[in-house]
Amino acid sequence: MKVRVNEVEHHVAADWRDETLLTVLREHLGLAGTKFSCGIGQCGACVVHVDGSAINSCLISIADVENKNILTIEGLASGDGSLHPLQQAWIDENVPQCGFCQSGQIMQALALVGDKPDPTDADIDSVMSGNLCRCGTYDRIRKSIKKAALVMRSTS
């Protein structure tokens, strides 16, 4: 069985085929940037993109993403190390506190700005409310999304 993650094809060993996508990413493929937090799709820490859509990777079986294109936080920066505008905005606004939820926040925000290039506060409330941050960095996340969206609009 094969999955394509961040444009690299990976073989999934037989013992791992009844795991979730999240567990395979973290424990089998060594991509630990995507986080486990609730396990029931309530917190968004494990958000990745499958064929361009944001999903909670804790809820989906690895078998369901066979041969699909998966994008994780590790694949967001360019090959030359330059950061995605969302990641750069997250640094410019000093968003992370403990940082644990931020991979999922950024991947969810990526879906938002893909869908709404100029997101309103209501768009942000609606799309980002599935991503919990116990440190309460929401105000900075909101600012960073708007900032990154502006950069992306002006460069596209």
Binding site: G33, L83, Q87, I91, P96, Q102
Partner: peptide, 17 residues
């Protein structure tokens, strides 16, 4: 900026698991 912030937005291995 907090030291090490880049790891936190790029999926660096910084937590126990």
């Amino acid at each position: 900026s907090p030291l090490g912030i880049r790891d936190l937005v790029t999926g660096g291995r910084v937590y126990t698991a």
